[in-house]
């Protein structure tokens, strides 16, 4: 009875969607279809993202999205990364005092999944890491970038944790502390890159802005725009590298924390701490 009711609701929703769509399109409302022209602001982004004719007003990256993410609206992305960082820190605060140590005399091959999957993982880890590095390092040229590459690279530690067991991961160096260090260093790199030009400006006595990338009319210093004949988008390359490290490490921390065996967590929690 409940089941029938559920499906009736589903069918009603599909029908009403179709009916609404029909009504809108029959009514001839202009909003039904996308506009033929792009918005003015977007036009400016498309015009200036890579434009050798306006050397003082370009981000020097053919990839408009990466340019917006790290150059035009870099501040957003810095804080977006810090949201992720703060979430990880808050999670670590919830799990504070819980350490995973691989038991000393343990047969690691006893844990984990079947031998086939383990072998396949061994082969593919290198491929995954190389492909993800390519995604990150070509972020200013092709779709991709630090976050994308980092998230792809994170597959490797994650499947290692799941397939070989947490203990194997910990004993082969995928530790919370080292990952936190990597994550923090990545973020510091992002911070340093975003302040690099303005520090240079303060030293040289020239006007400069936080998050500045290419030289501007009003602020004449900036990063080099090409490297070995390939557009590197100035700061974008560095941002992508650091973000790559930070994101891969961040994902790994999340999974390390999540895969801690429940018993050891309970042992710590029952150690007792409550506060008014």
């Amino acid at each position: 009875m409940r089941r029938a009711y559920k499906y009736a609701v589903l069918v009603a929703m599909i029908v009403s969607t179709l009916a609404l769509a029909l009504a809108v399109s029959a009514g001839g409302l202009g909003y039904a279809l996308p506009f033929p022209a792009v918005r003015n602001l977007a036009y400016w982004y498309l015009r200036t993202t890579y434009n050798p004719f306006m050397p003082k007003f370009t981000a020097s990256a053919p990839e408009a999205v990466t340019a917006i993410v790290w150059d035009y609206r870099g501040l957003d992305t810095l804080f977006e990364t810090s949201v992720f960082f703060l979430a990880i820190i808050a999670s670590m605060a919830l799990m504070r005092g819980i350490e995973v140590k691989a038991p000393k005399s343990i047969n690691l091959s006893k844990y984990g999944m079947s031998a086939i999957v383990k072998t396949v993982t061994k082969i593919t880890v290198a491929i995954i890491l190389a492909a993800s590095a390519s995604i990150a390092l070509h972020g200013q040229l092709t779709p991709g970038g630090g976050f994308q590459g980092g998230a792809t690279a994170a597959v490797a530690p994650l499947v290692i944790i799941v397939i070989f067991s947490l203990y194997f991961a910990v004993s082969s160096g995928i530790k919370k502390k080292s990952m936190l260090t990597l994550r923090t260093l990545g973020l510091l790199g992002i911070g340093v890159t975003s302040f690099a030009v303005i520090v240079a400006g303060l030293i040289l006595g020239k006007a400069a802005y936080v998050f500045q990338n290419q030289p501007k009319e009003a602020a004449p210093i900036g990063f080099p725009s090409h490297i070995l004949g390939v557009p590197m988008g100035g700061t974008l390359l560095f941002f992508n590298i650091f973000e790559f490290l930070a994101v891969a490490a961040g994902f790994t921390i999340v999974f390390l924390l999540l895969s801690v065996p429940e018993e050891s967590v309970r042992k710590v929690l029952e150690g007792g701490e409550g506060h008014d």
């Binding site: 995973v100 999944m113 597959v155 994650l158 499947v159 799941v162 801690v260 065996p261």
Partner: peptide
């Protein structure tokens, strides 16, 4: 692939990390 692995792990083992 990672999703496959997670679900398989979920089904066959007691703890996800072991």
């Amino acid at each position: 692939y990672a999703l496959d692995i997670y679900v398989a792990k979920y089904l066959e083992s007691k703890e996800m990390g072991e």
